[in-house]
Amino acid sequence: MSILILSLATLVTVGAIAAIILFIASKKFRVFEDPLIDRVEAALPSVNCGGCGFPSCRAFAIECVHTESLKNLVCTVGGIATMKEVAIIVGKDSGILRLPVAVVRCGGGCEVRPLTNRYDGVNSCAIVHNLYGGETGCTWGCLGYGDCVLSCKFDAIHIHPKTKLPEVDDDKCTSCNACVKACPKSIIELRKRAIKSRKIYVNCVNKDPGDLIAEFCSVACISCKKCLEACAFDAITISGNLAFIDSDKCTLCRQCVRVCPTNAIVEVNFPGRKNQQETIEEVMNPAN
């Protein structure tokens, strides 16, 4: 009997002492946190993707609460809806209208950019890039080993089975920038999202002089400057043998697409005319 009482007493004493210590500690070391932070965090998607530029959703929430204006802050996953919600919680204005979208700027599919050698090793763009220029004569273009696919947390980018090039699903893309960082060749770019996901861009990043690329890839930008003349809005610049369309200035008039001799400038999601997929197919089978 005495054992029972003794053990019971010991347990109770230990428990009581621990409780007192915990109570003191929680009072003494209490850190004040703005309750708004928890509310903002609750409104965020909690995927900690880092797309906003902060290491975690919580860090982003803290910034949202402490900042003056929400202008440069955007949760790329939640998008506009979430930012509006956050703006209401913290009582500030949300500045963003539309999020950009990732665009893969290489059109060098299997048929238009033939292989010159065969890589045998780890399936990783980073390792291939570290080793050499790639399996084709173009040392700038897509390597096709899918580091971008692995980096995407939203299942928004996939290697197309036919062209072996990555394709972005605009609806799923949250512009989190992960694929841009993952691509060792810096092919992927975040571009302004236009109405109905329409896009016009130079589908090439090769900076070699035109006469050298032509033999390796038939859809490369050869810096012929025709688009430069065709553009009425000064949206196109050419630097380092490569044309670039500024998505802020581009009015989607499609004049450059028409004049491009190698189909390096592509249009996507326009009505009435072929979409990108057909463009690629046409280039692959010029007969039809």
């Binding site: 292989l115 010159t116 050698n117 065969r118 890589y119 045998d120 090793g121 390792i127 080793l131 050499y132 399996e135």
Partner: peptide, 8 residues
């Protein structure tokens, strides 16, 4: 000859 193999 087949395409040459490249590996590290």
């Amino acid at each position: 000859m087949d395409k040459l193999i490249i590996s590290p």
